[in-house]
Structure formats: structure tokens, C-alpha cells
Simulated scan of single mutants.
Amino acid sequence: MPQHFSNEDYLKGIVLFGLNAATYKMALAKILLEAAKEQKNKIHWSELASSFFQLYKSRLAEKSMPQQGIAHRQTFMERIVQQHQSGKLSESDAIEQVGLKGFIDVIPRFQTIGTNKDIVKEFFYEFQYGSTLTLKDSLLNLSSAQLAELEGEIDARWGLLEGAFSINQSQYHLANDIREIYLQSGYERKPLTNNIPFLSGYQGNICFYCAEHLDSEIHVDHVLPRQVLQHDEVWNLVLSHPECNLLKSDRLVGKHFILKLIARNENIMGSNHPWKAKIAASLGTTPKQRAANLQKHYAKVSTVLGNNYWGGCDSYNPAIDPFYKKLITVLNNESQSI
């Protein structure tokens, strides 16, 4: 991978592009960001255990959502918090147990992207197990704006993992009506929920249509117009600036945006996103199937809309779109070419 990526890109890759069996990576990421805010280059094990325990204690008190997806099983942290809440463990004893057993997997494995252990090996910290985490400049030099954006993505990722685990444990089917999450009603857009930072990450944190950075006002748009498809499937939803959304309206987009949509969907498929199964069910179980089926949808919409065509904003050039230079996009392209 010859491209150079920013420290922020690498940390987003850890958070976004991971096959999470539990939520431990999100909790550790939050602790690391807090230490970076305070410019602490060392975290002692007892402090780490205390922060980890307090995070889970607070989270499970607010809404007791499952922290892993296997039915009738709990994570070690869920059990420790419950034992503390029932009076079986004092807080100090609970924290001691976290220090002894809570980090066996997450500390050694955190610095991986997907299943690749080499891309960011020891990039953000080194550790002496049971003693200290030593943070590196790659983490400490992140700006306050970068830290805030990362924190938003981590919070949203944690919430979506809990939702996915709840679905798995309860054997519920994920609702098809994405409007419950994104839209006030069928065609009315609104500023999005706290899931936006997470979804934005798979799009490279840029407007889908002009490739400029997304700001505080964001629209959700159907790439292939909803008036034709008559559904709100996540594979067809993207984030855009309001003005770009209005310029596009319900016109047919250029084929370069369909190719970009295919790549964006593969970014989601490369992770443990809760909607991964929905995309697979709608478009196919392999990248080739998904691309072919999306192209078929495009051809059908083209037949309906005819010459009502929109090639994109005047400033947009697909050849230099930063989306294709983002870490997770590059990783997914490389994995498909192997």
C-alpha cells in the first residue's frame, strides 16, 4: 500500500473497518482520545482499568444493550458491572478484576484494521501488559477538531454495534424502513441523527456529489430517485450538502456516481456494519453480484427518466475525488483485486 494516509485515517480505519465481536474496541478508543485531549503520553494500568470500568458502568446504566451478539451470553465487562451493581463486588475489586482480565484481547489486537495486523502495528501506542500504555505522537498530535470528529464516529459505531447485537440476540429482522432513522417522512430531509458521523466515515467524510468536506448541515439523498425505486434501502442512500442535493433533485446521475456508490457500499460490506446483511440480501453476496445488480437498477431507472440527466456539480472531477484515496476505500479495492 504505497499511499500515505493521515493519522486520523488510520484511527478511523481501526474503528470503521473491523469485525467486532464485542464493543471493547470502542471503549478503548474513547479512552485513548480522552488521553490525547489531555496530552497524556502514559496511561497506567490501574487508571486504564478504572476508565474502562466507568465507561461500561455508565453505558449499561443508561441503556442496558448487549455488548456482543451471541444469544444468552454476556461479555466479561457486563458481568463485572452486574456483580458490582448487585453488591457482590466493591468498585475497587471490580476495577482490579478489569485490570487482570478485561484487556486480554483488546489491548494486543486494537491496532489492526480488519484482520491486517501490520498496517498500524504499534502505530498509536506501545504497551507493557499489566503496567502501562505509552501513547505516540501519532495520537497526541491529533487536533481538537479531529478528536471531536473521531469521538462522534466512535460513539455512533458503538451504538450501531449494540443495535446489531440486540437484533442478533433477539432474532429480530432489521426494519426495512430506513426513514425511521434518517427521514421525518417519505421525502422530507432533516439534519441526521448521531449515526451520521459513522455513516459519513464510509463515504470518506465528504459530500457524495461535490467531494468537499461535509459540514454541520447534511442531507440524506437517494442516488437513484426514490420516486422510481419506491424504497429507502441503505445501499442507495448517501450524505450530501443541501445545495448539492437540491441541484441533483430527482434527475438521473452520471455513471461515475454509480461506480462511486458501488465502492461506498463495498466499504460498508468490508466492516461489521449492522446493515451489511441488508445490502447482501438486496444486491448479492459477492462484490461482483452487488455491482452487477446495482448496474441493473441504474439501467431500469435510466429507462424511466430518459434524458433527465445530471452529471454533477461543475467543480466535481471523479479523477481526483478524495473518496478513492481514503484508507478504507483503498483497502477494499486491494482486497477485491487479490
Rank of each mutant, 00 (worst) to 15 (best):
W45S: 05
E96A: 04
V81H: 03
K57Q: 13
A61W: 07
Y129G: 05
L147H: 13
F110V: 04
L147K: 13
Q68Y: 08
G69H: 08
I80T: 15
I80N: 05
L55W: 14
I104Y: 00
G18C: 08
L89W: 00
A49D: 10
F123I: 07
T134W: 02
S64W: 11
A36E: 08
T132P: 02
L32Q: 11
F127Q: 11
S46F: 09
F17I: 01
Q111V: 06
A148T: 14
Q54L: 14
V81E: 01
L19Y: 12
S143Y: 03
G130A: 15
L100M: 14
L48E: 03
S64R: 15
K121V: 06
L142A: 01
D118F: 08
N41T: 10
L33I: 01
L135V: 02
D118I: 03
F110K: 01
E122F: 09
V120H: 00
Q67D: 11
A21P: 04
T75V: 13
E91M: 00
M77D: 03
Q68V: 10
T23Y: 00
G114P: 04
K121T: 11
E78P: 10
E122D: 15
K63V: 07
L32P: 11
S51V: 01
S64D: 13
F123T: 12
A71N: 12
S131E: 03
A35H: 06
A27C: 15
Y125L: 09
A49I: 09
T115Y: 05
G18I: 03
S143N: 03
T112Q: 15
L147D: 12
D118P: 07
A49T: 08
R109W: 01
I113P: 09
G69W: 12
K136M: 10
Q146V: 04
A29K: 05
I95K: 07
R109G: 05
D137S: 12
A27D: 13
S131L: 00
K101I: 02
Q97E: 13
G87W: 11
S58D: 15
K37Q: 14
S138W: 03
L142G: 02
G87M: 12
K121D: 11
S51L: 06
G87H: 06
